[in-house]
Amino acid sequence: MARKKDEALHQRRKSEILAGARACFIEKGIHQTSMQDICQRSQISPGALYRYFASKQAIIEAIAAAEQQSNADLIDHLKGAKDPANALLQALPELLDHILDHDFARLMVEISSEASRNPAVQKLFAAIDDQFQHDLNNIFAARRKFGPFGDADHTAHQIFVLLALIDGLVARAANDDLPPREQLEAMLHKTIQALFK
Results as ranks from 00 to 15, higher is better:
Ala2Lys: 14
Lys5Glu: 13
Ala8Glu: 10
Ala8Gly: 02
His10Thr: 04
Gln11His: 12
Arg13Trp: 02
Ser15Met: 10
Leu18Arg: 10
Cys24Arg: 11
Cys24Leu: 02
Ile26His: 06
Gln32His: 12
Thr33Glu: 00
Ser34Glu: 04
Ser34Asp: 00
Asp37Thr: 00
Gln40Leu: 13
Gln43Ile: 02
Gln43Cys: 11
Gln43Asp: 12
Pro46Leu: 09
Pro46Arg: 13
Pro46Cys: 03
Gly47Lys: 08
Ala48Tyr: 11
Leu49Glu: 09
Leu49Val: 02
Tyr50Val: 10
Tyr50Ile: 10
Ala58Ile: 08
Ile59Lys: 03
Ile59Tyr: 06
Ile60Pro: 01
Ile60His: 03
Ala62Gly: 02
Ala66Met: 12
Glu67Leu: 10
Gln69Asn: 13
Ser70Glu: 06
Asn71Gly: 04
Leu74Gly: 00
Asp76Trp: 03
His77Ile: 12
Leu78Glu: 01
Leu78Trp: 01
Ala85Gly: 11
Leu89Gln: 00
Gln90Ser: 09
Gln90Thr: 14
Ala91Met: 02
Pro93Thr: 08
Asp97Cys: 08
Asp97Gly: 07
Asp97Thr: 13
Asp101Phe: 02
Asp103Gly: 08
Leu107Gln: 09
Met108Thr: 06
Met108Cys: 15
Val109Arg: 03
Glu110Phe: 00
Ile111Lys: 08
Ile111Pro: 00
Glu114Gly: 01
Ser116Ala: 12
Ser116Glu: 04
Ser116Cys: 04
Arg117Cys: 03
Asn118Asp: 13
Pro119Phe: 14
Ala120Ser: 15
Ala120Ile: 12
Phe125Cys: 03
Ala127Glu: 14
Asp129Ala: 14
Gln131Ile: 04
Gln131Trp: 08
Phe132Arg: 14
Phe132Ala: 06
Gln133Trp: 11
Ile139Ala: 07
Ile139Gly: 09
Ala141Phe: 13
Ala141His: 11
Ala142Ser: 13
Arg144Gln: 14
Arg144His: 08
Lys145Ile: 14
Gly150Val: 05
Gly150Phe: 06
Ala152Asn: 07
Asp153Pro: 00
His154Phe: 13
Thr155Asn: 07
Ala156Asp: 12
Ile159Tyr: 05
Val161Ser: 04
Leu163Met: 15
Asp167Ile: 00
Arg172Phe: 02
Ala173Glu: 00
Asn175Arg: 15
Asn175His: 11
Leu178His: 07
Leu178Tyr: 05
Glu182Ile: 13
Glu185Ser: 12
Ala186His: 13
Met187Gln: 15
Leu188Met: 09
Leu188Arg: 05
Thr191Gly: 01
Leu195Tyr: 10
Leu195Glu: 02
Leu195Val: 09
Phe196Asp: 07
Lys197Arg: 14
